[in-house]
Every structure is written in C-alpha cells, then in structure tokens.
Amino acid sequence: MSANPLALKIATPYARALYDFSVEQNIMHQVTADFQNLEVFLTKTPELTEYLSNPVIGVKQKEDVLTKTLKSQLNSETFKFLMVLVKRDRINLLSSVIVSYLELVYKTASVKMIEVSTAFPFTTVQKLNLIKKLKELTNAREIRLVVTVDSSLIGGFLIKTNSKVIDFTIKNQLENLAKHLDGVLEI
C-alpha cells in the first residue's frame, strides 16, 4: 500500500484516466480484478518489476515480455493500458498506478484499505473480528486488510489507515514503560 509519493503524484493522472475509462466502458470490475491480481503478481516477481523499470531495456523487449507473461491473463483493455504505459516510458510506475487506481475504486465503493502489522499471523476468526470492528469504527461497507507479519513487535498489532496509527504492540508498550521509568528514576 505504501508507495513513493512522487511516483504516486505522476501515476495518479494515469490511474484517474483508466478509472474514468473503465467506468465509462462498464468494465471497472474486470480492470479492478486485473489490478488486484497484478499487484499480487508483481509482489511475488520483483525481477519483473526490475526488468520493466530498467531504462536500458527497450520498449519492444518490454512489450514482448508483457505479451508473453500477462496478455492471456488480463482483460484486453487492461493489457492495452499496460502497453500505453510502456510506450510512454511510464511502465516503471505500474505499482504506483495500481495503488492509485485501487484507491479510487475503494473510495467510490466505500472500501477502506488498512495496513496491519502483527507479530504473529491472525487466525481467520481474529481477522474477521478485526474487520468487523474496523467496519464499525470507520463506517466503511468493506475493509481490505493488508497484513504484514513483523516478529520485532513481540506481540499485539499496529493498525495504519490514511490518517491514523493505532499501536497495540507489546514493543510500543515496553518503550512507553521504559520512558516512564526513565522519567520517574531521574531525581
């Protein structure tokens, strides 16, 4: 979910244009599904992202790689959009375009993207309970959790939304206790 602010600024007009086009053509659901799948795929294949971002590699080679790897997996309009990014030498912004596009879709659909860092993976019941509580707190119709496991948190979890950070981690509680004790013990 986190991305380079400058890249997001450049990527936003592309995302907005694709969003408007997908709404106009009544293909928003297909494009959104493509981008959700692409987001996962790019996360699992960092070498593809590096290849596409490499300025030494030519447009034709990038088009060929995308055609071989993604053309059969994507809606034709989504694939054409990727080719536009390649031709305009903006394919290196693909991850930022995906983030911007999905934010537009989620905002329209009242879906909140929330990042959660936890020391241990959530069980299904814990995840469902957290989603239920977050729906109540944010008044969203749907919550999309992006969960990362970070064992340095020791226990508990950290919730990040657009404007708030809620820290229920043991690491944070220990740091606060240490600060308190430092203040009390300095006489």
Results as ranks from 00 to 15, higher is better:
50 E>F: 11
50 E>P: 00
53 S>Y: 01
53 S>Q: 08
53 S>R: 06
54 N>M: 11
54 N>C: 11
56 V>L: 14
57 I>N: 05
58 G>L: 06
58 G>D: 14
59 V>G: 00
62 K>T: 03
62 K>F: 04
63 E>C: 07
64 D>W: 02
65 V>A: 14
68 K>V: 05
68 K>Q: 15
68 K>C: 08
69 T>C: 09
69 T>W: 08
69 T>N: 09
71 K>R: 13
75 N>V: 04
75 N>W: 05
76 S>E: 14
77 E>L: 07
78 T>K: 07
80 K>C: 01
80 K>G: 03
81 F>V: 04
81 F>D: 03
82 L>D: 03
82 L>F: 06
82 L>V: 05
82 L>N: 02
82 L>R: 04
83 M>N: 02
84 V>E: 03
84 V>W: 04
84 V>S: 07
84 V>D: 09
85 L>M: 08
86 V>T: 01
88 R>Y: 13
88 R>Q: 15
89 D>F: 10
90 R>W: 02
91 I>L: 07
91 I>Y: 02
91 I>D: 01
92 N>M: 10
92 N>R: 10
94 L>S: 02
98 I>P: 00
99 V>G: 02
100 S>P: 04
100 S>G: 15
101 Y>D: 00
102 L>Y: 01
102 L>M: 07
102 L>T: 02
103 E>C: 05
104 L>F: 15
106 Y>N: 15
107 K>H: 13
108 T>E: 15
108 T>L: 15
109 A>L: 13
110 S>A: 13
110 S>K: 15
111 V>C: 07
111 V>M: 06
112 K>W: 03
112 K>C: 08
113 M>H: 12
113 M>I: 09
113 M>A: 13
113 M>E: 14
115 E>G: 00
117 S>N: 11
118 T>Y: 05
119 A>L: 08
120 F>W: 08
121 P>W: 08
123 T>V: 10
123 T>W: 11
125 V>R: 11
126 Q>M: 09
126 Q>S: 06
128 L>C: 01
129 N>M: 12
131 I>W: 00
131 I>V: 14
132 K>V: 01
132 K>P: 00
132 K>S: 15
136 E>G: 10
137 L>S: 11
138 T>E: 12
138 T>Y: 08
138 T>D: 06
138 T>N: 11
139 N>G: 09
140 A>W: 02
140 A>E: 04
141 R>L: 12
142 E>M: 11
143 I>K: 03
145 L>W: 04
145 L>M: 04
146 V>I: 12
147 V>R: 04
147 V>W: 06
148 T>V: 10
148 T>G: 10
149 V>C: 09
149 V>E: 13
150 D>F: 04
150 D>L: 06
152 S>I: 06
152 S>W: 03
153 L>Y: 05
154 I>G: 09
156 G>H: 08
156 G>I: 07
157 F>V: 07
159 I>L: 13
160 K>A: 05
160 K>G: 03
161 T>I: 07
162 N>K: 13
162 N>C: 02
162 N>I: 06
163 S>W: 09
166 I>N: 03
168 F>A: 13
168 F>I: 05
170 I>L: 15
170 I>Y: 12
172 N>L: 01
174 L>N: 07
174 L>C: 09
176 N>C: 08
176 N>H: 11
176 N>V: 01
177 L>N: 05
178 A>F: 12
179 K>Y: 13
180 H>M: 12
182 D>E: 14
182 D>L: 14
183 G>L: 11
183 G>A: 09
